[in-house]
Structures are given as C-alpha cells and as structure tokens.
C-alpha cells in the first residue's frame, strides 16, 4: 500500500503553515504561563520584571506543600496497584479467551470514554452510601480507590498495545525448551512488555497527579490534592503564586508524559 502523496505548490505551503500554527497554538499558552510565573507583578497577566519569589512562596506555603505531598502519595499508591491489575487484565484479554471476556473488555473501556463529571458523580454516590453502611471517612482511601479505577484502563490499553505487537510464539518456544509457564512469563514475556508496563505506569501517575474533578468529588473534609486545592484557589481569585504552582504541575506532567511516550517506544530488554 502506498501512502498519500505530497501535495504540491500552494496547497503544500498552506498545509505546512497550518501545521506550524497548530503547534504554536499548542505550545504558546504554555510558554506564556511559564514566562508570567517569573513576573514581579500582582496581576497574573502583566509583566513586572523578573523574580523567582513566587516559587519561593510555593515552597514555604505549608498548605500547598501539604497538598503536593498528598498528591504524590496517592499517585504512588494508585500507580502501583493499577499497574499490577492493568497488566494482568491486558494479559488475560490479549492471550486468553474466557467466559465474560467481552463484558470485561467493555467494563475496562468505559472509564476511558466516560466524561469526568459522570464518573465523579458515580463514585460520590457510591462512597457516600458505602460510608453510611461501613462507616469509614472519605479522604486518602476513597481518592486512591477512585484513581485506581480509571488508571487500570489506561495501563491495560498501553500494555495490550505492546502485547499485540509481540509474537506469542516466543513464549511457546520458551515452553518447548522446558521453561515452566511462570518461567516463560518471567523471563520472556515480562522483559518484552516491560516498556509497555513502564509507559503505562508513567501515564497512570500523570493521570492521578492531574485529576481534579473526580478527586474533588470523593475527597473528605480537610483533605485535598494539589490540583484540587489550586482549582479552589483559582475560583477565589488568582495570584501569581498560582502561576508558579501551575508551572510546577505542568512541567512534572509534561516530563512524565514525555518519559511515558519514550519508554513505550523502547525495544524492551532482550530476554536473558
């Protein structure tokens, strides 16, 4: 099959122009935000000379650093659990057929496409009801449980993509050479899908660190993650401090995403 041939002349020039504009559209606002986080002016969008004081303020604000620490703890827990569950789900779907497979597949796909607000509402009602019955308080546990619920899906999608591109004859070959089922998995399949697992883990971490809507719904009194806290600050009125916090979240998020994309493209360790 041949790909689409390149258009010529004016068409090509205008297409190229549009493409560059799209990238400007994507990245210029990010750049503007970064620039203004260094601006020495109370108004968030007006330049007033260079300063790093907003970042210093962030480091000294115990509420912000506390929320950051909450975010990190939740992200670590949510990532670890969702990676294990998501990888197992991917293996089961890609390598086996079993009863209820289609239902499972659909169930795994839904959290990806459902709007944030809907999922947030679902979990809010669920946890409120469950808290009434079992008597626990909302906070760390409910947030972590909710994050795992949507991270599993994303991890399994990334790992499945990796598994689909892998020849399952390799595993068969290992077993022909008297590797046990576990050995074949541990020494052949696992190293090959490792980039997918790592990529999925980084993605899960990004999603957990970035989530606002669902977290805001399932959190308890006095418990907040960084994005939720920042979101509440924006609604109260902005200060350049928010610019600085935003830039920190943005950079963290972009680095994690870039790493995730990079690891997914790796070849994977040679089984040895």
């Amino acid at each position: 099959m041949t790909g689409i041939t390149e258009p010529r002349g004016m068409t090509k020039a205008s297409l190229r122009g549009i493409s560059w504009l799209v990238y400007v559209f994507f990245y210029a606002p990010i750049l503007v935000l970064i620039i203004f986080s260094f601006s020495d002016n109370r108004n968030v969008g007006v330049w007033g000379g260079f300063t790093t004081s907003w970042y210093a303020d962030f480091a000294q604000d115990s509420k912000l650093t506390g929320a950051l620490s909450n975010s990190l703890q939740i992200a670590v827990v949510a990532t670890l659990i969702s990676v294990v569950l998501g990888t197992m789900a991917a293996l089961a779907l890609e390598r086996f057929s079993f009863r209820g497979k289609q239902v499972f597949d659909a169930l795994l796909y839904l959290p990806v496409i459902i709007p944030d607000v809907t999922m947030a509402v679902m979990l809010l009602l669920f946890f409120t009801q469950a808290a009434k019955w079992f008597g626990f308080s909302k906070g760390f546990s409910t947030i972590a449980l909710s994050h795992i619920a949507f991270c599993i899906s994303f991890v399994s999608i990334v790992v499945r993509a990796r598994l689909a591109g892998m020849d399952d004859k390799l595993e068969e070959a290992a077993m022909d050479l008297y590797a046990s089922r576990w050995q074949a998995f541990r020494y052949v399949t696992l190293p090959l899908i490792m980039p997918g697992i790592l990529g999925g883990a980084l993605l899960a971490m990004t999603l957990s660190l970035d989530d606002v809507v669902i977290t805001q719904f399932v959190t308890g009194a006095g418990w907040s993650t960084l994005p939720v806290y920042v979101f509440s600050l924006i609604r109260k009125g902005v200060t350049p401090l928010i610019n600085a916090v935003s830039v920190v979240m943005l950079v963290a998020s972009m680095v994690l995403v870039a790493l995730s994309l990079l690891t997914q493209r790796l070849r994977g360790d040679d089984p040895a």
Binding site: Y23, F26, Y27, P29, I30, V32, L33, F36, N43, V44, G45, V46, L203, T206, L207, L209, D210, V212, P227, V230, F231, I234, V238, I242, N243, S246, V247, M249, L250, S253, M254, V257, A258, S260, L261
Partner: peptide, 28 residues
C-alpha cells in the same frame, strides 16, 4: 505525533488556566 501527544496528556487544569492568564484583564 509525539508533540501532539504531549499536550494531549498534560495537566488539563493547568492548560485551561494558561488561557485565563492570557485572556484576563490587561493580559497578553
């Protein structure tokens, strides 16, 4: 593709907030 994917997954709240800064009174 990579440079489309990066904003795709990057913090949605912050990306919206960037427009708040740009479009605000006396903003850029």
């Amino acid at each position: 593709l990579v440079f489309v994917m990066i904003p795709f997954w990057t913090n949605f709240l912050v990306r919206n907030y960037a427009w708040y800064v740009i479009l605000g009174t006396d903003g850029p």
